[in-house]
Write a protein that binds this DNA or RNA. Structure first.
Lengths: 297, 297
DNA sequence: TCGTCTGATATCTATAGGCGTATGGATCGT
DNA sequence: ACGATCCATACGCCTATAGATATCAGACGA
């Protein structure tokens, strides 16, 4: 593929001339004198290799080759202008695509509000969201398959990725309404020592799982998982059915399910929700997302 | 619409670099040194207003804006190359559209062979053919709604249109096989004095009609039309049915119909078939058609 | 036949852009 | 720590081309 070296200005001059069919008027529209326009057209005709306009006896008309080239020129000019505008829009963060990975446990918490707010502010931006756990998020960030991660319990000591805390959620105990502890306004962790826990499988979110196990350990007992579920709604349902209790981020309270009660745990413990992104990522949309998510809370 | 003044070469360099993601190799593929390539990209980034590639730590990668611009650049380059090629093809007469008007009486004679030959030689050319009589052909030529006319008995004395004789056809008498004159190998015109003629209506081709009438007048009698028909095939059928005789260009002999005989007339008379085109028409397809039609016969 | 209009040509200037070579600075691997 | 790799920068050169003004040539109409 060799390059068809031909200046855009010539194409532009050609389209204007093709509309006016008059060198003087076309030159005026282009803001130049008439002779330069003649030259432009001449050059264009030279590179094409054929006359594009016939100027016999004062009457200017398109030749067949010119008629063939005109729509091409218009397409090219239009495509170029549109493409440039689009690229600029993307460059300024007014448009484009942002790929976001998020931990499943955030689907009930920060994610919905974040998405709504961002879409309101930047309607031209397409958001690709994919549920993934912390580890895969970090990998996906590094390989560039996502631009932003939303996760819990951000790991420290990484230099290629940056994290910013978005939210701190209290942990709450999830209990059957009929459970004796549900009568209290808050539940000491130790009181759960004998209970079986209903949790997401550890591989669905090792950070949060370990954090909850850590809370149990801090209270002096080893957490016993009696039942797994893959969604938080199911966790609540199973707790309501009496298959165990759970400890979960407070966002879970949005799940209103008969027979299930949420109670603060003591001592108060919090789980950090963070955004993660590549250090040095210049994608303006990343900055937009950070500023959308940061100062708000 | 202002013009996005940006050189094609920069777009080209950008696409190559986007493929290689390596300044050195891309420059080599472009046949230039590396620093000029850096400059090209720099300029392009300046006009776009944003970085198109990130070159952090030796690793070159497209930015979102670059990702947005890349397909645009490809489209523009491809469209330009294709369009240039198409315009050149049209300019050289390898493609395009040629509008041809033809007299109905030629549908049996030169037209089919002409069309086939032209299509074989220039398969990229679209031929628009429209049946029209001589007068409308001349008007259509002048107003540009056809590019070439095929007609009989070209008029003289015109300066804006040119004519070239394509063929000279003998006239033949069309007779019922049972007609006494069909026994002869040639028919004197005078022998048809008493016969009724089957012809196309005069307004379907005044030139030919008048020519035939002239032959009769030269033979000393006034032609009497006993029957009109709008197609030559019908003329033959009517002659075969005994509704009269006819005099027609020899091309009509291609119509093989039982009960119809064709005989040379005496004195031998010929009708000229000509192509007509605008004086000064630079459409290469017109020249192609003329050369296709001229030397062959 | 003579203005008038239209486009082509000639000539000149300024500038932008492309290219090359030489060099600097950062990063990475050994 | 050092060399290799890779991209950026800094010059200098040169060409192409856009632009202007002045002028010419042909066509057309009054």
């Amino acid at each position: 593929m060799d390059r068809p070296e031909l200046p855009i200005s010539q194409l532009h001059a050609f389209t204007v001339l093709a509309e006016e069919l008059h060198f003087g008027r076309a030159a005026a529209r282009l803001g130049i004198a008439q002779p330069p326009l003649s030259q432009q057209i001449r050059r264009l005709e030279t590179t094409v290799g054929h006359r594009l306009l016939s100027r016999d006896s004062g009457r200017v008309a398109l030749t067949p080759a010119g008629r063939e080239l005109l729509p091409v020129a218009r397409r090219v000019l239009g495509g170029l202008a549109d493409g440039l505008a689009a690229a600029r829009a993307v460059g300024e963060g007014r448009a484009g695509r942002l790929r976001i990975g998020f931990a499943a446990s955030l689907a009930l918490t920060v994610l919905p509000g974040l998405l709504r707010e961002f879409r309101d502010r930047y309607p031209g931006v397409l958001l690709d969201i994919a549920e993934m756990t912390t580890g895969p998020q970090l990998d996906a960030l590094r390989e560039g398959s996502i631009d932003v991660g939303l996760l819990r319990e951000p790991p420290g000591g990484l230099t290629d990725l940056l994290f910013a805390t978005v939210d701190e959620e209290r942990f709450v105990a999830v209990l059957p309404s009929s459970h004796p502890l549900a009568a209290r306004s808050s539940v000491p962790m130790e009181a759960l020592a004998a209970e079986g826990f209903v949790l997401l499988p550890r591989d669905q979110g090792p950070g949060l799982f370990d954090r909850i196990a850590g809370l149990c350990a801090a209270a002096g007992f080893t957490m016993r998982v009696s039942q797994h579920a893959v969604e938080w709604l199911t966790v609540c349902a199973l707790v309501g059915a009496g298959l165990g209790v759970s400890v979960a981020p407070a966002g879970i309270e949005r799940v209103r399910l008969d027979g299930v009660a949420f109670r603060a745990v003591e001592p108060t413990a919090r789980t950090r929700v963070a955004v993660a992104w590549r250090a040095g990522d210049e994608n303006p949309l990343v900055a937009r997302l950070l500023s959308a998510v940061g100062p708000t809370r």
